Amino acid sequence: MTEQPYKRPRRFIAGVVCPKCNEMDKTVMFTNDEGDEVRECVACGFHQTYAQHAAEEQAQQELATRVTPAGKTVLDEGEQPLKIIGFGTVDPKQK
C-alpha cells in the first residue's frame, strides 16, 4: 500500500482581485512545501509568495502628495487647545 502525500487545502479568498488579470474571486491561498504562504490566481496562473509580496511592498516608495510633499518634514507640535472664535460663554447681564 503506497502512502498518499498530504495535500494542503486551498482556500478561496472572497473579494480579492488578481493583480495580473484583474479577475475577482479567482485567488486561492495555500501553504507550499517550504512552509511559505502562497497566493495563486486560478484564472491566469499568477503565483506569489508572501515573502515576494513583502519585498515588493518594501521596494515601493511612499507617494508624494499635497499632504506629505517630498522633501518636507512633517512636524507635530503636540496637542494644543482648539479656540473657536465667536462661540464663548455669554454673560446674561449683557442681553
Score class of each variant (00 low, 15 high):
Lys83Cys: 04
Phe87Glu: 04
Ile13Lys: 08
Asp91Thr: 10
Val16Phe: 09
Cys18Met: 04
Gln60Ile: 08
Gln60Thr: 02
Met24Tyr: 05
Met29Cys: 05
Lys7Glu: 09
Thr73Lys: 15
Gln4Lys: 07
Asp76Asn: 14
Arg8Val: 03
Asp33Lys: 14
Arg66Thr: 03
Thr27Asn: 15
Arg10Cys: 06
Thr73Asp: 14
Pro19Ile: 03
Glu57His: 08
Val90Leu: 08
Lys95Leu: 13
Arg10Glu: 12
Arg66Tyr: 10
Gln58Ile: 08
Glu62Phe: 13
Ala43Ile: 03
Gly15His: 05
Lys26Asp: 01
Ile84Asp: 02
Thr27Trp: 00
Lys72Met: 10
Pro69Leu: 08
Phe87Gln: 13
Pro81Gln: 04
Ile84Tyr: 01
Gln61Trp: 14
Asn32Ala: 05
Tyr6Asp: 05
Lys93Glu: 13
Glu57Leu: 14
Met24Ile: 10
Lys93Ile: 07
Val90Arg: 06
Arg10Trp: 07
Thr2Gly: 08
Glu57Val: 13
Ile13Tyr: 02
Gln61His: 11
Glu62Ser: 09
Met29Val: 01
Pro9Gly: 10
Arg8Asp: 02
Pro9Asp: 03
Ile84Met: 11
Leu82Arg: 04
Glu79Cys: 03
Asp76Pro: 04
Gln61Val: 05
Glu77Tyr: 05
Arg39Ala: 12
Thr89Pro: 07
Asn32Lys: 01
Gln80Ser: 07
Thr65Gly: 08
Gly86Leu: 03
Lys20Arg: 12
Asp25Leu: 08
Leu75Lys: 08
Pro19Met: 02
Phe87Trp: 15
Ala43Cys: 09
Val42His: 06
Lys83Arg: 05
Glu40Asp: 08
His53Asn: 12
Val42Gln: 03
Met1Ala: 12
Phe87Met: 15
Glu79His: 14
Arg39Lys: 09
Lys7Ala: 04
Val17Asp: 12
Thr73His: 13
Asn32Glu: 00
Glu57Lys: 15
Lys83Pro: 01
Gln4Val: 15
Val74Ala: 02
Gly88Thr: 05
Leu63Phe: 06
Lys93Asp: 08
Cys21Asn: 00
Asn22Met: 04
Leu82Gly: 03
Phe12Val: 01
Gln61Pro: 07
Cys21Tyr: 03
Thr2Trp: 09
Gly78Thr: 07
Pro9Trp: 03
Val16Asp: 11
Gly15Pro: 01
Thr49Val: 04
Ala55Thr: 07
Glu40Lys: 02
Phe30Thr: 01
Val17Ile: 14
Tyr50Gln: 14
Thr31Val: 13
Met24Asp: 07
Ala14Met: 04
Ala59Met: 12
Gly71Val: 03
Gly35Arg: 06
Pro5Phe: 00
Ala54Gln: 12
Gln61Arg: 08
Ala14Trp: 06
Cys41Val: 00
Ala51Asn: 11
Phe87Asn: 12
Glu23His: 04
Pro9Ile: 10
Ala14Arg: 06
Arg11Asp: 10
Pro92Glu: 07
Lys7Gly: 06
Lys20Ser: 15
Ala43Glu: 10
Val28Thr: 11
Asp76Thr: 09
Met29Arg: 11
Thr89Leu: 14
Arg66Asp: 15
Cys44Glu: 02
Gln60His: 05
Tyr6Leu: 06
Asn22His: 13
Phe87Leu: 14
Leu63Thr: 11
Phe46Cys: 09
Gln4Gly: 14
Pro9Gln: 13
His53Trp: 06
Val17Ala: 10
Gly71His: 02
Leu82Asp: 03
Gln60Met: 13
Lys72Arg: 15
Pro69Lys: 06
Phe12Ser: 01
Ala59Cys: 07
Gln80Ile: 15
Thr68Ala: 12
